[in-house]
Design a protein around this nucleic acid. Structure first.
Length: 505
RNA sequence: GCCGCAUUCGUCUAGAGGCCCAGGACACCGCCCUCUCAAGGCGGAGAUCACCGGUUCGAAUCCGGUAUGCGGUACCA
């Protein structure tokens, strides 16, 4: 499969998630686009964990992210060691907290070259300054108060016990770059807010700093990330230059949006990949859908597997505008892929969902593999998500069926007709079943019964359906009866009949 | 506020000067199939291509402006 794709190009891309939350839809899409780009050109796909926000990072999130990417089939060529395994790749470690000495070395270098300087301003001072600017209707910007401190003044602050953050000197000029998706972007550094902090007072490095050092150290050639980083790009370019590193190419992907067109967020949308997995979206559907959010082949084809996506993906064909996440379309695509699964594969994927139904107490026993296999023809085209299996076929695995008596009587029937219909049906089914309990043996006599009594076959069937399943929407009736087996079919008919008054007045 | 990016049916998108009074898909509506639900087939409705000016014989496509939206503007990532 794709995880053993040969490396035939110098292209190196990365996905750099921060383990401060479960794998997010947007991160997954960015990872997918990086992966597709790498595979398309025969490049290398690197995974790096940006865990410098120690307070919010956790191992549980890290695991969720790694598992999620694996589940999607986005295997990386280089990345951190997990579960006792060695890290893979020549540019490790791939966790930023294990790379601290490298950031310290780079910080020293910038400091020595006077491209960065210690800033002794306190949070309160900075806050006051920001307020002053805001009141004067000026853009927030660091004044540069500490930029020209003499060594003596610095020593005085240190003696005072103040801790210094390290600020990068921004200088003047215009930073320009050719975004692979948006074309030329030019930003005057006067607008990026002044000299910015690259190392905190406590000595830990900040994102804008680590991302540049690592992208350079890991020889990343193309930075493919979300549009929310577009405005930050000049900060990165300035650092690449100051460090004497080659500047990678940039490609900023359009954002995935909430229905109200704001950046997709946990508050307004379901963003955790894990939640989609537990609902029963399958990787083929999710990958296909995500790939089409912001990209298209340029043709009218839209059912594309990972292999095909790798072959066809073009970064230049990515859209510029944000895309609203459309769950209905995802469900449709997911259903398409479920229908394309082989029976064996569907059985395998259904098993955990049936087991979950059992654990939740919605069914009394989880069916065997063979039982599920027999079910596949009845359910395969009726599952938008695997999790729908409980609603669709759960009645087969419950010991005591709950029936809403109100549903038992078909729309055009009264309870007396329903009762006699079910009584007669029970006889017919018992008789037919004694020959062979098969769909072909059951249907003709029941149709004949309806005709003899002047009933619409559909009404009779509906009464039977509700009697044996408790539902008005089920897989085809006769296949359902067969799946249920003769004993349970007859017992359920009996129980349903008992629910109907035998002398309605 | 400032800076940046964006703007084609409700949604995802095709479209790179004439093939477009704009094509496909999801959703929606109708019909067919049909024991229900799906699936599938057929058809329908749905976009004055944000707006205004320009360039051109001709613009959704090129240029300028405006509007709106979003993003960024942290000792978060």
């Amino acid at each position: 499969m794709t995880d053993s794709a040969p490396i035939t190009s110098d292209v190196r891309v990365r996905i750099a998630p921060s383990p401060t939350g479960p794998l997010h839809i947007g991160t997954a899409r960015t990872a997918l686009f990086n992966f597709l780009f790498a595979r398309h050109v025969g490049g290398t796909f690197v995974l790096r964990l940006e865990d410098t926000d120690v307070a919010r990072s956790s191992l549980a999130y890290e695991k969720d992210i790694l598992d999620g990417l694996h589940w999607l089939g986005l295997t990386w060529d280089e990345g951190p060691g997990v579960a006792g395994e060695e890290a893979r790749g020549p540019y490790g470690p791939y966790r930023q907290m294990e790379r601290l000495p490298r950031y310290a070395e780079a910080a020293d270098r910038l400091r020595a070259a006077d491209r960065a300087y210690p800033c002794f301003c306190t949070a309160d001072e900075l806050e006051a300054e920001r307020k002053r600017l805001e009141a004067a209707k000026l853009p927030p910007r660091y004044s540069g108060r500490c930029a020209r401190l003499t060594e003596a003044e610095r020593a005085a602050f240190v003696a005072e016990g103040r801790w210094a953050a390290l600020r990068f000197r921004v200088g003047e000029g215009v930073v320009a770059f050719d975004d692979m998706i948006r074309g030329r972007v030019e930003i005057d550094v006067a607008n990026i807010g002044g000299d910015y902090v690259i190392v905190r007072g406590d000595g830990t490095p900040l994102y804008h700093f680590t991302v540049v050092i690592d992208d350079a150290a890991m020889r990343i050639t193309h930075v493919i990330r979300g549009e929310d980083h577009l405005s930050n790009t000049p900060k990165h370019i300035l650092l690449f230059q100051a460090l004497g590193e080659e500047i990678p190419r940039f490609a900023h992907l359009p954002l995935i949006l909430n229905p109200d067109r704001t950046k997709m967020s946990k508050r307004k949308s379901q963003t955790a990949i894990g939640d989609y997995i537990s609902e029963g979206f399958i990787r083929e559907g999710l990958v296909n859908y995500l790939a089409l959010l912001g990209w298209s082949t340029g043709t009218e084809e839209e059912l594309l597997g990972l292999e095909e996506l790798c072959a066809r993906f073009e970064l230049e064909a990515v859209h510029k505008g944000g895309a609203v996440f459309d769950r209905e379309r995802l469900e449709w695509l997911n259903g398409q892929w479920i229908r394309r699964l082989t029976p064996g594969a569907l059985v395998e994927r259904l098993q955990p969902f049936l087991e979950a139904e059992r654990v939740a107490g919605r069914i009394d026993r989880a069916p065997s593999e063979d039982e599920i296999l027999a079910l596949v023809p009845l359910v395969q085209e009726r599952l938008p998500v695997l999790g729908a299996i409980g609603d669709l076929a759960g009645f087969l695995f419950v010991d005591r069926l709950e029936i809403d008596p109100a549903l038992l009587t078909p729309k055009r029937w009264d309870t007396a007709t329903t009762r006699s219909g079910l009584v007669a049906a029970r006889e017919v089914i018992a008789a037919a079943g004694s020959v062979a309990f098969e769909a072909d043996e059951l249907e003709p006599p029941l149709r004949a019964l309806a005709e003899a009594r002047g009933w619409k076959a559909g009404d009779l069937f509906m009464a039977i359906r509700v009697a044996v399943t408790g539902r008005t929407a089920t897989p085809p009736l006769f296949d359902t009866l067969v799946a249920l087996g003769p004993e349970r079919t007859l017992a359920r008919l009996e129980a349903a009949i008992a629910l109907l008054p035998d002398d309605p007045t």
